[in-house]
Nucleic acid binder design. Structure first.
Length: 591
RNA sequence: GGUCCGGUAGCUCAGUUGAAUAGAGCAACUGCCUUCUAAGCAGUAGGUCAUUGGUUUGAAUCCAAUCCGGAUCACCA
């Protein structure tokens, strides 16, 4: 059992009996003892003092004495400072933990449970390539899915491709007008970028036509409506919905180009999906909800024929669920897709990794499902993350300030190469090994950079300052791992040797932190927050480096000490490896 | 305007079920490579935790008001 929990469990009856009061485990506040005080774990007494009106000094001494007497295997000593009862732990229980765990590469993995979870992430439009915002989404979704798996859940990663609608028609019309039949292959360009360029061309042409219209005396609104290219785009959408073969073929062809581009990027960043939904195949599914909602009196029809739901009792607004022309709106499609997913996977929880600009939409989605008494409604969880912004504010495709994912990755790889060459530690690597290392470091830096921040918070990316390779970064942790591997290549810990049973301060601190790994994973899962893991693994790396510079491992004074430290190094490496894997980051043996 | 989110060191961020002197990284400055990888370690400096009031033995954390920033409230997706 985890130490902190164990301490709580053990202390609860001791506190009850020694003080003659009635308490529950949850009332006990146990925390790591601050570095500047003696001890390992601390019981904070203030709450008990207040509630039971007891004398702090007497109370602390009573609990401390009883604990050390009754649980001498766990508690070595205690000291009392104000309302803080600091316990020092017996080294033996820490060493036992080390001995049973140091070679366990599965440390942190929980037994399988029966709960099914869906995680939907990425969900791009098919009219332009992926950008930095998608990367945050993808890394988050992927990591959450892996964290859930690690803690025993049965997880399905899914992706919804928004392959239909006015946006892709814009790229299509621009291709028809300006491409002269060119293709990604003919111009040697990645398919998603190729299609994205035509989306840009559409906007340029559209803007010019609007200006022209205004110059001819139209209002801006009229000009926007009347621009020939916009009218042609809308016609294209109607033709697509009518099933016009030529239009559908072009649509299909351009989407294929985009998918090839996406897949290349997904492969590069290690994103994967168990199931992909295409909006073109699911967008009509929600309509049957409308009938049900009307029949149940949850929806109502307005005079013009539009169908609505009134959410004002819940403090929201009236929301349209079906247009007067009978076509679906966004929310209707999502209702249908939620149902479809549930039919296929019977999930207990369905996590949607979507930016916080859609908080309202997701709230409405869940609320409508609840009102329709869908059994899966309460399992819907919006993992809402803040947008990635530039120092100048939001990224805007129209202003060309979008940070392209492929470009950024290429820059990171280049930065990794420069840095590695500068340091010159891997001159014996062959080109393949070098290529692999640059990729590992580049993605490690990028993923860590995006995952170390609390998902809920928006974050600022400054393209002028390149993503660091020092300090609170992926490469810092990768480096710590490589250092340990360098030692373990020379000598591995063996099970047969007895080990030193006295722990230095740095050893003890590291060991206590390593022991918390499973609890950290639980917290990350509970909060749907990979940054918890990022923060933790950084702390572990720092503790190890600090230990490493102060104490020799291979050249330790005795065999028993060397064996102890080798085990500690080995466990540290395992925890780093596992943590980083769960963030989607690989660790190199040398760098 | 309604609703929601945020404001912590020069910058980027932790810390928010109330608890010890508010922590990291970057940037700045000082030391440390003949010893397991210096992408490292040790240290210095840097704070009115947006503001004001309240609750409390104790508030960055809870409550209220105010200021500032953002998102959203489409027969767009």
């Amino acid at each position: 059992m985890l130490l902190q929990q164990k301490i709580k469990k053990i202390l609860a009856p001791i506190v009850q009996d020694s003080l003659g009061i009635s308490i529950t485990e949850d009332e006990l506040v146990i925390q790591r003892t601050k570095e500047e005080f003696e001890g390992d774990y601390t019981l904070v007494l203030f709450g008990l003092i207040k509630k039971h009106k007891l004398n702090p000094a007497l109370m602390g001494t009573t609990i401390g004495t009883a604990a050390c007497e009754q649980q001498g295997d766990l508690f070595k000593s205690y000291n009392l400072l104000k309302g803080f009862l600091n316990f020092s732990l017996q080294e033996k229980c820490l060493l036992d933990f080390l001995s049973t765990t140091y070679s366990n590469t599965q440390f942190g993995k929980a037994a399988e449970n029966t709960k099914r979870v869906m995680v939907e992430y990425s969900s791009p439009n098919t009219n332009k390539p992926l950008h930095l915002g998608h990367l945050r989404n993808i890394f988050l979704g992927w990591s959450i899915a892996e964290l859930l798996k690690e803690r025993g859940y049965s997880v399905t990663k899914s992706c919804v491709v928004n392959d239909r609608g006015i946006h892709i028609c814009k790229s299509m019309i621009a291709w028809q007008l300006f491409a002269n039949g060119s293709t990604p292959a003919s111009v040697g360009q990645k398919g998603d970028h190729f299609v994205g360029n035509f989306y840009v061309k559409f906007n340029e042409a559209y803007k010019a036509q609007v200006e022209e219209g205004v110059a001819c005396g139209l209002t801006k609104e009229q000009a926007e409506k009347e621009a020939p290219i916009m009218k042609a785009t809308q016609q294209l959408l109607q033709d697509w919905e009518a099933g016009n073969q030529e239009v559908v073929d072009l649509w299909d062809r351009m989407n294929q180009w985009v998918y090839e581009g996406f897949n290349e990027t997904y492969l590069k960043i290690g994103a994967d999906f168990d199931k992909t939904y295409y909006e073109s195949k699911t967008y009509l599914l929600g309509k049957k909800f409308v009938e049900q909602g009307l029949a149940d009196g949850i929806f109502f029809k307005k005079e013009d024929g539009g169908i609505w739901i009134d959410l004002t009792p819940e403090g929201l607004d009236e929301k349209l669920v079906l247009r007067k022309d009978g076509t679906s709106v966004y929310i209707t499609q999502d209702l249908g897709l939620a149902e479809q997913k549930f039919q296929e996977y019977q999930y207990e929880q369905s996590i949607y990794v979507i930016a916080d600009e859609q908080n309202y939409h997701m709230k409405v989605l869940q609320l409508i499902l609840q009102k329709l008494s869908k059994p899966y409604a309460n399992g819907i969880y919006h993992l809402s993350y803040g947008m990635v912004e530039l120092p100048s504010g939001r990224m805007k495709s129209r202003e060309g300030t979008v940070v392209d994912a492929d470009d950024l990755i290429a820059e990171m790889i280049e930065a990794a190469r420069t840095k590695t060459e500068e340091l010159g530690k891997v001159k014996d690597f062959n080109p393949n090994e070098l290529h692999k290392l640059y990729h590992t470091l580049a993605l490690g830096a990028l993923k860590f950079y995006l995952l170390r921040v609390d998902p809920k918070k928006k974050m600022i990316f400054n393209p002028q300052e390149s993503i660091d390779f020092q300090g609170f970064t992926g490469p810092f942790i990768q480096y710590t791992y490589a250092r340990i591997q360098s030692i373990l290549r020379k000598e591995s810990p063996t099970a047969t040797h007895s080990i030193e049973n006295k722990l230095k301060k740095e050893e003890k601190e590291l060991l206590i932190s390593l022991e918390q790994f499973p609890a950290v994973l639980d917290q990350a899962v509970m909060e749907h927050n990979p940054s918890v893991v990022a923060l933790y693994v950084f702390t572990i790396a720092k503790l190890f480096n600090s230990f490493y510079t102060q104490h020799a491992i291979i050249n330790a004074p005795t065999i028993a000490t060397r064996q102890l430290r080798l085990r500690l190094a080995s466990l540290t490496a395992n925890v780093i490896h596992r943590s980083m894997s769960l963030l989607g980051i690989e660790v190199p043996n040398r760098m």
